[in-house]
């Protein structure tokens, strides 16, 4: 018995070292089982598209599908751009200048996914309701977006997201 007391420090070291290695091993085993649920390589490979924007007349909008979700591309009118530029930053829930959200002021490219719970807002077609700020309106829980896709009213916390995109030429953009 007295031996165990003398060697207590060494025994504790063995116990702690064993448990630590067990924890490391367990984490190493669990990781692949958790990570397998993340997007697979083929899903990630589909993550960029090219869009021809030459056919969109002023005041028109098109919807394209990128990574399984709609992207709204809107050729804005001068009045819409003006409206978006005039907004007082203090009135915005998620303050962001209109010019920070576009490459060229006339072309607005945004994710057509409500930042509340992921529904597709209305307002792309002429016949659809555009909400109180003349942009988009989400029918699921009543969020209103302005002509820059910024949240103005309703439960959504942030502005409609701007996806990464670049102009390949004057007529073609690459999203993703």
């Amino acid at each position: 018995m007295s031996d165990t007391v003398e060697n207590q420090g060494r025994r504790d070291f063995i116990v702690v070292a064993t448990n630590t290695m067990l924890a490391v091993g367990a984490a190493a085993v669990i990781y692949p089982f958790v990570n397998q649920m993340n997007p697979a390589a083929d899903t990630l490979a589909l993550s960029s598209i090219e869009v021809d924007i030459s056919g969109i007349e002023e005041g028109q909008a098109i919807t394209v599908k990128w990574r399984g979700k709609p992207v709204f591309i809107r050729h804005r009118t001068a009045k819409e751009i003006e409206l978006a530029g005039q907004v007082n930053m203090d009135d915005l829930r998620d303050p962001q200048g209109d010019l920070d959200r576009v490459e060229k002021p006339e072309l607005l490219v945004i994710q057509g996914i409500c930042t509340h719970l992921g529904c597709v807002p209305l307002g792309q077609k002429i016949s659809e309701v555009k909400g109180d700020y003349n942009g988009w309106f989400c029918p699921c829980h009543g969020s209103h977006y302005d002509t820059s896709g910024r949240i103005r009213k309703g439960p959504a916390p942030t502005n409609l997201e701007v996806p990464p995109y670049t102009f390949l030429s004057d007529n073609v953009i690459k999203i993703g």
Partner: peptide, 27 residues
Amino acid sequence: TVITNLFSAIPWIGDSIVVWLWGGFSV
């Protein structure tokens, strides 16, 4: 879509959790 998006309300890691639940960028 709506129910899985509930998890995006979690601060900081919410969006990664939703992508993890979906196994992609949408349902």
